[in-house]
Computed example of a mutant assay.
Amino acid sequence: MRKALIILLLIPVVALTQTKEELDFVAPMSEGVAAIKKGNAWGFIDAEGNIFVDFREDLVLTKTDFGHYPIFRNNRCLISVKKEGVLFFGYIDKTGKTVIEPEFLNAQNFNSKQALVLKLMKEELGRNEILGKNIIYHRYFEVIIDENGNVKTYLNPKGVNVVLDKKSIKKPPKITSKEISKKLYAVLNKNKKWTIIKIEN
Score class of each variant (00 low, 15 high):
5 L>K: 15
5 L>D: 13
7 I>S: 09
7 I>C: 09
10 L>V: 14
12 P>Y: 03
14 V>T: 14
14 V>H: 09
14 V>L: 15
17 T>I: 13
17 T>N: 02
17 T>P: 02
18 Q>R: 12
20 K>P: 00
24 D>A: 05
25 F>Q: 08
25 F>G: 01
26 V>Y: 01
28 P>M: 07
30 S>W: 00
31 E>Y: 11
31 E>F: 10
34 A>V: 09
38 K>N: 08
40 N>C: 05
40 N>A: 11
43 G>T: 08
45 I>S: 04
47 A>P: 00
48 E>T: 12
48 E>S: 10
49 G>Q: 04
50 N>F: 08
50 N>K: 11
51 I>L: 05
52 F>H: 06
52 F>I: 00
53 V>R: 04
57 E>Q: 12
57 E>A: 07
58 D>S: 06
60 V>A: 05
62 T>L: 05
63 K>F: 14
63 K>I: 14
63 K>W: 13
63 K>D: 13
64 T>Q: 07
67 G>I: 12
69 Y>D: 04
69 Y>T: 03
71 I>V: 15
72 F>A: 07
73 R>N: 13
78 L>Y: 07
78 L>M: 06
79 I>G: 03
84 E>I: 13
85 G>S: 06
85 G>N: 11
86 V>L: 03
90 G>N: 05
90 G>T: 02
92 I>L: 00
93 D>E: 05
93 D>Q: 01
94 K>T: 12
100 I>M: 01
100 I>W: 03
100 I>H: 07
101 E>K: 13
103 E>W: 11
104 F>I: 09
104 F>A: 06
107 A>M: 03
108 Q>H: 12
109 N>W: 09
111 N>I: 14
111 N>V: 12
114 Q>E: 10
114 Q>A: 04
115 A>E: 08
117 V>E: 06
122 K>W: 07
123 E>R: 13
123 E>P: 04
124 E>F: 08
126 G>M: 02
129 E>P: 02
130 I>W: 11
130 I>P: 02
134 N>S: 13
135 I>D: 03
138 H>F: 15
138 H>N: 11
139 R>A: 00
139 R>D: 03
142 E>R: 00
142 E>H: 10
143 V>C: 09
143 V>L: 03
145 I>L: 04
145 I>V: 15
145 I>W: 07
146 D>C: 02
147 E>V: 14
149 G>I: 07
149 G>R: 06
150 N>K: 14
151 V>Q: 07
152 K>M: 14
152 K>L: 15
153 T>P: 08
158 K>G: 05
158 K>T: 14
163 V>D: 09
165 D>L: 05
166 K>F: 13
167 K>N: 15
168 S>Y: 11
168 S>Q: 12
169 I>L: 09
172 P>S: 03
173 P>T: 01
176 T>P: 02
177 S>I: 10
178 K>E: 06
184 L>E: 12
186 A>W: 04
186 A>R: 10
186 A>P: 10
188 L>K: 12
192 K>W: 10
192 K>E: 11
193 K>P: 04
200 E>V: 15
200 E>H: 14
200 E>T: 15
200 E>L: 12
201 N>L: 14
